[in-house]
Amino acid sequence: MWTRRPTCAVPLLSSVLDQYDATHARELALYRSWLAVALADANEPQQAAAEAQRVIDLSGDLSSDRTAERTRVVLQRLQPFADVPEVRQVLTEHGRLLLAGEGATP
Rank of each mutant, 00 (worst) to 15 (best):
M1L: 14
W2N: 14
W2H: 15
W2V: 15
T3H: 13
R4N: 12
R4G: 10
R4W: 12
R4L: 14
R5D: 10
P6H: 08
P6M: 09
P6T: 09
C8N: 15
C8H: 15
V10Q: 11
V10D: 07
V10W: 03
P11L: 04
P11A: 07
L12P: 02
L12I: 12
L13D: 05
L13G: 04
S14C: 10
S14M: 10
S15W: 13
D18S: 12
D18L: 09
D21Y: 08
A22E: 08
T23F: 03
H24C: 05
A25R: 14
E27V: 08
L28A: 10
L28F: 02
A29W: 01
L30W: 09
L30A: 11
R32D: 03
W34H: 14
W34A: 14
W34F: 14
L35V: 10
A36I: 06
V37N: 07
L39C: 07
L39R: 08
D41L: 08
D41K: 11
A42K: 08
A42V: 10
E44I: 11
E44K: 14
P45D: 10
Q46S: 15
A48P: 02
A48G: 03
A49I: 10
A49D: 06
A52K: 00
Q53K: 15
V55T: 10
I56Q: 00
L58F: 06
L58I: 13
L58T: 09
L58K: 09
D61G: 15
S63P: 04
S64W: 08
D65T: 12
R66C: 03
R66Q: 11
T67G: 05
T67H: 02
A68C: 06
A68R: 14
A68I: 03
E69Y: 09
R70N: 05
T71R: 01
T71W: 03
R72A: 09
R72Y: 01
V73Q: 09
V73E: 07
V74Y: 04
L75I: 02
Q76R: 12
Q76M: 11
R77S: 04
R77P: 00
L78G: 01
L78E: 02
Q79E: 11
Q79G: 03
Q79I: 05
P80K: 06
F81R: 02
A82P: 03
D83K: 07
D83H: 10
D83Y: 05
D83M: 11
V84E: 02
V84T: 04
V84F: 02
E86A: 09
V87Q: 04
R88V: 00
Q89L: 02
V90E: 04
L91R: 01
E93N: 11
G95W: 01
L97C: 01
L99C: 05
A100E: 00
A100G: 00
G101C: 02
G103M: 09
T105W: 05
P106H: 09
P106A: 09
P106S: 10
P106N: 11
